[in-house]
Each structure stands twice: as structure tokens, then as C-alpha cells.
Write a protein that binds this DNA or RNA. Structure first.
Length: 471
DNA sequence: TTTTGAGTTGTTCGA
DNA sequence: GTCGAACAACTCAAA
């Protein structure tokens, strides 16, 4: 059993099939930093992976097995492991990243040439991207019809539990987890991650249960409020396959809330994950190239200084900076704020969305090639079914609307703590007495805005106008 | 083949 | 303060 991004024992099709053979099963994980090229896993994601592997190894040991850890190009490592162990078959759950598809096909070919059975399964998606075409056979490019078709024709079957009889044996000694170098050493910047997250299958189910018990009913409204704990925070668990979308779907149904506003809205977010994978599969350039080629002519005039202000949370727009600091500290950012921060990078700072995509890739614990690429292209306006060009978020209005008391900003930008709700999203509008009372020296404790949003908006509209004709 | 209806998440302006 | 319209035109998906 070759584990990849399916780090769970429950509802794991490849593991179930391996168990069903009755043969002894060796469990392996390969840290392959070679095959992904530029899309090698980022720092925050590596931290998560470390702990998720540790968790899976503990679970396997309880069943008499263990996880064999190996590093290197899976095209070499997997066949070598087969030779060493005398394995007769290798089972795994599919991945959809372009580099992973190429790699896995090669592994499969090599194994089959050697007379080894190689089987892959669907362990990550409700519907395989090739199983949900439009009536003309083309892939869906618009979310709503895609989601309708999925619900009508591809509702997932009941999730399976853990294999009832699993004959695990220990494989050869591989690398020690510590030697895979997944954790930051000097400096150890993972303190905020440890505070906020517990990787692993059990924690994933706890998160989901807590969400369904306490938050899903009000989700349609509270999901937009970054100062409240209104979302499920399941994204990293889903990314690593500690829980399957099918399990999520059925837990929500079992709760009886699937048809409520909150339940429907939440399940549609699972739908967006599916849609992103559908796009990535059919358009493998999605992470690297504008889906709409006319965006190739867009003039990205923002430079390194602006990018630095954005990544450090020093743009002078509190809602943007709060989000960027939450990301840096916890490896996660609230979805509403992701949209605001993305809109700001692209439409206020005129920086190519791919730079934002790369930053998120490195800093998010839930960094996922499909979701990250599809969402950045959506925000930039360059994607399939993207936001209309005139949809430019106003960071002040958004802050006032979705963080009305300023709690979220105060949490992540302590230097603005003394400002009231009226000024906290636009500190430059406070008069000098108010600033003095709050103990804020603008330009010293907290930056002046790096750009004037009203001007930037006009410039963005003009820039979009320029690339409008001739698609 | 042609037609028709629709398309995640917003902002601004003027009445 | 509130509300509706304008912001473009295009592409997608299905009838």
C-alpha cells in the first residue's frame, strides 16, 4: 500500500482493496521532492505532512504494522521497494497534479513490465474528472452546472470504514521521520502552527464533528466573518486525505442539515474543491498559465517592494494585513480574507497572481495545487468562470462589512488595538487626537497605505479595458 | 444548428 | 441611510 495524500485508514479504497486480497500488506510513504519540480511542497505543508505521517504511523502500529518512509523519485523508490520485499502488487489512490499523473503512469508501467500488479483507486474525489462531462462531452467550465450535474448523477455512495481484516506486516526500515527534514529547524517558525492545528485522521473527524454540532447551521452567514470561528477549518485535513470528501458529505447528510441553508452552502464548498480538481485535470496548465490567454497581455507593474509589503502584512490596509499575518503565523487564512488579500495583490498592487499563488503555496498548511490555482485565477479574473473584471474589493468596505467590530484586525495587528470600530479599517482617516489616544503613530507603528485604493481601482479598470478585445 | 438563459463571494452612484 | 441600476460583453450549457 503506497500512501500519498490519503493519510487515513477509514474509507480508503486502495487500502480496502489491499486488505481484501488477504495477503500481508506493507505500508509505505515516499517523500518525492524530485517529481514535482517547481511545485515541490512548501514549508507549512511540510510541517503538516510530518505530523500527519507520525499520526498515520501510530495508527498503523496499533494494528501491528508501521509506515515505511522513503525519500526520492518514486519512479525509482517504489520499484526498488518491490524488489527488496518481493511484493506482488502495489495499490494506491490517485493524484491529479500533472507531475503526479506523469510519474504515476511511469511507475505503473515499470511495475507491470516486471509482472507486478499495479492498481490505482479514487480516494480523494467524489467524482473523477473524466466521469463528469457536459452533454457534448466537454469538461465543465462553469461551477453551477458542474455542481448540479454532480449532485444529480454522482452522489457518493456510503463511505467505507476501516478494513475489517487487515494483515499488516512491517516493511523494511526506511528513513526516520526526523531525517526527512520536514520540520523547520533554525529558526523554528512553527509555533503558531502547533498552537492552531492537530494533523491526523482522528483530529480531522473531531473537527468535522465539532463543526456540524456547533457551526454548520449558521454557516451561510458566519462563514464570512473572519473574527468568528464560523468555518470548518477542514481544508488541510482534506488536502492530506486524513478525511475524504465522501465522509464529509455523509456526515453532513446524517446530521439532517444537508438541506438547510448552512448545510447546502457548506456542501457547495466541497463542490468547489471538486470543480477545482476538474479544472486542473482538464487544463493542466492551470497553476502556471492564464486560463484566459488575453491576460498574457496584462501589464503587471507592481514591484518587489509592494510584494514585500503584502507578504509581511504591511500594506497599510488593516484587513489585508491582518489576513497576511494570520497566514504567516498560523498557516491558514480565513476564506473571506483570502479573497480580499488576493484582490488587493492583483488589482491594487498590480502584481501577477502567480506571485500570490507561490506565496500561498509556501505558507498555507492547506496548500493544494488545484484549489490554489483555480482560486487565484478566479480572483485575478483570468480563470474559468472567474469574477467579472469590475469586481474589485474595497478593503475598507470589506473590513467594515465582515469585521464590523474590528476584532479580527485587533487580533492580528496589535499595534492598532486602541482604535475603535469606526477607524480601525482606515486608520488614516482618524484625526490626530484619536490616533494619539490609541497610541498609534501612522508611518511609524503602522504604515500609511501603500497605494490609494480609489486610484488603484480606476487604474485596474483601465488596465482590464486594455486587454478586453480579441480573446 | 440555433436559441436562450445564466453566470460564488462587489462597488459606486444617484435618486 | 437605503435601494436599485449600471458596470460589458462573452461564453457556457442545455433545450
Amino acid at each position: 500500500m503506497w500512501f500519498r495524500q490519503d493519510l487515513r485508514l477509514g474509507d480508503n479504497p486502495a487500502l480496502l482493496a489491499a486488505a481484501a486480497t488477504g495477503a500481508p500488506v506493507i505500508c509505505a510513504y515516499v517523500l518525492d521532492d524530485v517529481s514535482p519540480g517547481v511545485w515541490k511542497r512548501g514549508g507549512a505543508s511540510r510541517w503538516w505532512l510530518h505530523h500527519s505521517l507520525a499520526s498515520l504511523d501510530r495508527d498503523l502500529k496499533r494494528q501491528g504494522g508501521a509506515l515505511t518512509l522513503l525519500a526520492g523519485d518514486a519512479r525509482d523508490v517504489i520499484p526498488a521497494l518491490v524488489r527488496k520485499t518481493g511484493a506482488r502488487a502495489v495499490y494506491w489512490n490517485r493524484r491529479y497534479e500533472p507531475w503526479a499523473r506523469t510519474r504515476d503512469e511511469a511507475v505503473k508501467r515499470t511495475l507491470k513490465q516486471g509482472g507486478i500488479e499495479a492498481r490505482s483507486f479514487n480516494g480523494s474525489l467524489i467524482v473523477e474528472p473524466w466521469d463528469i462531462p457536459t452533454k457534448t462531452g466537454a469538461p465543465y467550465k462553469v461551477f453551477t452546472p458542474f455542481w448540479k450535474a454532480l449532485q444529480a448523477g454522482h452522489a457518493p455512495s456510503e463511505p467505507a470504514g476501516r478494513p475489517a481484516r487487515l494483515n499488516l506486516i512491517k516493511g523494511p526500515h526506511g528513513d526516520a521521520l526526523e531525517d526527512l527534514d520536514l520540520l523547520p529547524q533554525s529558526p523554528d517558525w512553527a509555533g503558531g502552527l502547533r498552537e492552531h492545528w492537530t494533523p491526523g485522521e482522528e483530529a480531522a473527524h473531531d473537527r468535522l464533528a465539532g463543526f456540524i454540532a456547533n457551526r454548520i447551521e449558521a454557516y451561510a452567514g458566519t462563514r464570512n466573518l473572519p473574527g468568528r470561528h464560523g468555518t470548518s477549518r477542514l481544508s488541510p485535513h482534506l488536502h492530506f486525505g486524513e478525511i475524504s470528501p465522501r465522509q464529509v458529505w455523509h456526515r453532513v447528510r446524517q446530521s439532517g442539515l444537508a438541506a438547510s441553508d448552512g448545510g447546502r452552502t457548506y456542501l457547495s464548498e466541497i463542490g468547489w474543491r471538486e470543480f477545482s480538481y476538474n479544472l486542473l485535470y482538464h487544463f493542466p496548465d492551470l497553476p502556471d498559465a492564464n486560463f484566459q490567454p488575453r491576460f498574457d497581455r496584462f501589464e503587471w507593474t507592481g514591484g518587489p517592494a509592494q510584494l514585500k509589503a503584502w507578504t509581511r502584512g504591511q500594506t497599510g490596509y488593516p484587513i489585508v494585513d491582518a489576513g497576511m499575518r494570520e497566514l504567516w503565523r498560523t498557516g491558514w487564512m480565513h476564506n473571506r480574507v483570502r479573497m480580499i488579500a488576493a484582490s488587493f495583490l492583483v488589482k491594487d498592487l498590480f502584481i501577477d497572481w502567480r506571485q500570490g499563488e507561490a506565496w500561498f503555496w509556501d505558507t498555507l498548511v492547506d496548500a493544494d495545487l488545484a484549489s490554489n490555482a483555480a482560486s487565484w485565477q478566479w480572483s485575478a479574473g483570468s480563470g474559468a468562470d472567474a469574477a467579472p473584471y469590475f469586481r474589485i474589493f474595497n478593503p475598507v468596505t470589506q473590513g467594515e462589512k465582515f469585521d464590523p467590530d474590528g476584532d479580527y484586525v485587533r487580533k492580528w495587528i496589535p499595534e492598532l488595538h486602541g482604535l475603535g470600530a469606526k477607524q480601525i479599517h482606515a486608520p488614516w482617516t482618524a484625526d490626530s487626537a484619536e490616533l494619539a489616544r490609541a497610541g498609534v503613530r501612522l508611518g511609524t507603528d503602522y504604515p500609511e497605505p501603500v497605494v490609494d485604493h480609489a486610484e488603484a481601482r480606476k487604474a485596474a479598470l483601465a488596465a482590464f479595458e486594455k486587454i478586453k478585445d480579441a480573446a
